[in-house]
Computed example of a mutant assay.
Amino acid sequence: MTEQRPPLPPFTPETARRKVRAAEDAWNTRDPHRVALAYTPDSRWRNRTEFLTGREQIADFLTRKWHRELDYRLVKELWAHDGDRIAVRFAYEWHDDSGQWYRSYGNENWEFDRDGLMAHRHAAINDLPITAAERFFHWPLGRRPDDHPGLTTLGL
């Protein structure tokens, strides 16, 4: 049986936005195994300086990530799309075990298979130390509320 993750390519502006929001929602669960299911079994990633292949490596990476990046909250925004590819910009806030807050900014390039599973993900990310007072993302852990401002509105 074929796995499908609608919306499927080729993407329109509306379906690309829905795909981006679905990814944001999944990542905000901080459930590594749930997130990994959105990728092909042999998906290839570049995340900062790490290169991963397959769902097991993705889930292991995310487990380590969310063990280190506490109180993680993410906002993604569609940058561009074409056919089976989507470019995204994002920001997320988190703190380490010493209480130091960070805002991590980045860009992702995604390529999907015909069933809407992500086959390639290339991410470039920079971390900015911030104070707790500089945070923008204050919703309860989990899905970002629909009325919470996005990156453009926040000037990010």
Rank of each mutant, 00 (worst) to 15 (best):
T12E: 11
R17Q: 10
R17P: 02
K19G: 01
K19W: 05
K19R: 11
A22S: 15
W27I: 04
N28D: 13
T29A: 02
T29Q: 05
T29K: 04
R30G: 00
P32D: 03
H33A: 07
R34G: 04
L37Y: 03
Y39K: 01
T40Q: 02
R44C: 09
R44V: 15
R44H: 13
R46K: 15
R46G: 15
R48D: 10
T49D: 12
T49F: 06
E50W: 08
E50Q: 14
F51Q: 11
L52E: 05
Q57K: 12
Q57C: 04
I58D: 15
A59P: 02
F61G: 02
F61V: 02
F61Y: 14
L62E: 10
E69F: 06
Y72S: 12
V75Q: 06
V75R: 09
L78C: 07
W79S: 13
D82R: 15
A87Y: 08
A87M: 12
F90K: 03
A91K: 02
A91D: 04
Y92H: 11
E93F: 01
E93V: 03
H95N: 12
H95D: 08
D96V: 05
S98N: 13
G99R: 11
G99L: 01
Q100D: 08
Y102D: 02
S104L: 08
G106H: 01
G106F: 12
N107L: 14
N107R: 11
E111N: 06
D113L: 07
D113E: 12
D113G: 10
R114E: 11
G116K: 05
A119N: 13
A119G: 15
H120V: 13
H122P: 01
A123Y: 00
A123W: 00
I125W: 01
I125M: 15
D127T: 07
P129W: 08
I130F: 03
A133V: 09
F136L: 11
F136R: 13
F137Q: 04
W139Q: 10
